[in-house]
Lab assay of single mutants.
Amino acid sequence: MKGKVVSYLAAKKYGFIQGDDGESYFLHFSELLDKKDEGKLVKGSMVHFDPTPTPKGLAAKAISLPLE
């Protein structure tokens, strides 16, 4: 699924993505496929991810940034 980063707290390594389906997904650095892309996780960045339901809500897994 595609989505847009709505927040990312680099110090805490987490944030949120708004998916194309309108839902909010929890984003964690550990799910970023290329850790070098962390600096690109800023508000408004477009990402691809696997939407995954968890006991705490919806989460983004296997997060990647589109090729530039």
Rank of each mutant, 00 (worst) to 15 (best):
residue 7 S to A: 11
residue 18 Q to Y: 10
residue 65 L to I: 13
residue 66 P to W: 15
residue 11 A to M: 10
residue 52 T to A: 14
residue 40 K to V: 05
residue 43 K to F: 11
residue 41 L to K: 01
residue 3 G to F: 02
residue 60 A to E: 01
residue 10 A to L: 08
residue 29 F to D: 03
residue 43 K to C: 09
residue 14 Y to W: 12
residue 67 L to C: 11
residue 12 K to Y: 10
residue 19 G to F: 02
residue 28 H to G: 06
residue 11 A to V: 11
residue 25 Y to S: 00
residue 41 L to Q: 00
residue 51 P to S: 07
residue 42 V to I: 12
residue 12 K to D: 06
residue 12 K to E: 07
residue 22 G to I: 02
residue 31 E to T: 04
residue 68 E to T: 13
residue 46 M to I: 15
residue 41 L to R: 00
residue 23 E to S: 10
residue 50 D to W: 15
residue 49 F to R: 01
residue 2 K to S: 13
residue 34 D to V: 08
residue 55 P to E: 11
residue 1 M to E: 04
residue 23 E to Q: 15
residue 11 A to Q: 11
residue 28 H to I: 05
residue 34 D to S: 08
residue 50 D to C: 14
residue 19 G to R: 00
residue 55 P to N: 10
residue 15 G to L: 02
residue 19 G to D: 04
residue 54 T to P: 02
residue 36 K to Q: 11
residue 61 K to R: 11
residue 14 Y to T: 05
residue 26 F to C: 04
residue 37 D to I: 08
residue 54 T to D: 06
residue 12 K to V: 08
residue 26 F to L: 05
residue 50 D to T: 15
residue 65 L to A: 07
residue 44 G to P: 02
residue 13 K to D: 02
residue 44 G to N: 06
residue 50 D to M: 15
residue 4 K to F: 14
residue 60 A to L: 02
residue 37 D to P: 02
residue 39 G to M: 12
residue 14 Y to H: 05
residue 1 M to V: 06
residue 37 D to W: 08
residue 47 V to S: 01
residue 61 K to Q: 08
residue 43 K to V: 12
residue 34 D to P: 03
residue 42 V to C: 10
residue 64 S to P: 01
residue 65 L to Y: 05
residue 65 L to H: 04
residue 13 K to E: 03
residue 59 A to D: 04
residue 26 F to W: 08
residue 61 K to W: 08
residue 49 F to H: 01
residue 28 H to K: 07
residue 27 L to M: 12
residue 24 S to P: 06
residue 42 V to G: 07
residue 62 A to E: 07
residue 63 I to Y: 02
residue 45 S to I: 15
residue 55 P to F: 09
residue 3 G to P: 00
residue 1 M to Y: 05
residue 35 K to G: 07
residue 9 L to E: 12
residue 37 D to A: 09
residue 53 P to W: 15
residue 32 L to K: 00
residue 45 S to T: 15
residue 41 L to S: 01
residue 16 F to Q: 04
residue 49 F to G: 00
residue 61 K to V: 09
residue 13 K to H: 10
residue 23 E to F: 14
residue 52 T to W: 15
residue 36 K to V: 07
residue 3 G to H: 01
residue 62 A to W: 09
residue 54 T to Y: 06
residue 25 Y to P: 01
residue 9 L to C: 14
residue 62 A to N: 15
residue 33 L to T: 08
residue 1 M to K: 07
residue 48 H to P: 01
residue 63 I to Q: 01
residue 8 Y to W: 07
residue 5 V to Y: 02
residue 22 G to A: 04
residue 11 A to E: 12
residue 67 L to E: 13
residue 38 E to H: 07
residue 11 A to L: 11
residue 32 L to I: 05
residue 3 G to Q: 00
residue 15 G to N: 00
residue 32 L to G: 01
residue 30 S to H: 09
residue 40 K to H: 08
residue 57 G to Q: 03
residue 22 G to N: 07
residue 60 A to S: 03
residue 47 V to F: 02
residue 15 G to K: 00
residue 67 L to I: 12
residue 29 F to P: 06
residue 26 F to E: 03
residue 65 L to G: 04
residue 54 T to N: 07
residue 17 I to S: 00
residue 66 P to V: 15
residue 56 K to V: 08
residue 28 H to F: 06
residue 2 K to R: 13
residue 8 Y to Q: 01
residue 18 Q to L: 14
residue 56 K to H: 12
residue 14 Y to I: 06
residue 49 F to L: 01
residue 65 L to M: 12
residue 13 K to T: 03
residue 41 L to F: 04
residue 53 P to K: 14
residue 37 D to R: 04
residue 63 I to S: 00
residue 9 L to T: 13
residue 28 H to E: 06
residue 6 V to P: 02
residue 58 L to Q: 07
residue 64 S to F: 14
residue 64 S to A: 09
residue 8 Y to E: 00
residue 26 F to M: 05
residue 44 G to C: 07
residue 58 L to A: 06
residue 47 V to R: 00
residue 15 G to H: 02
residue 67 L to G: 13
residue 15 G to I: 02
residue 60 A to H: 02
residue 18 Q to M: 13
residue 23 E to W: 09
residue 16 F to V: 06
residue 20 D to I: 10
residue 33 L to P: 03
residue 27 L to K: 00
residue 27 L to H: 01
residue 63 I to K: 00
residue 22 G to D: 06
residue 1 M to F: 07
residue 17 I to F: 02
residue 43 K to N: 09
residue 8 Y to I: 08
residue 4 K to S: 08
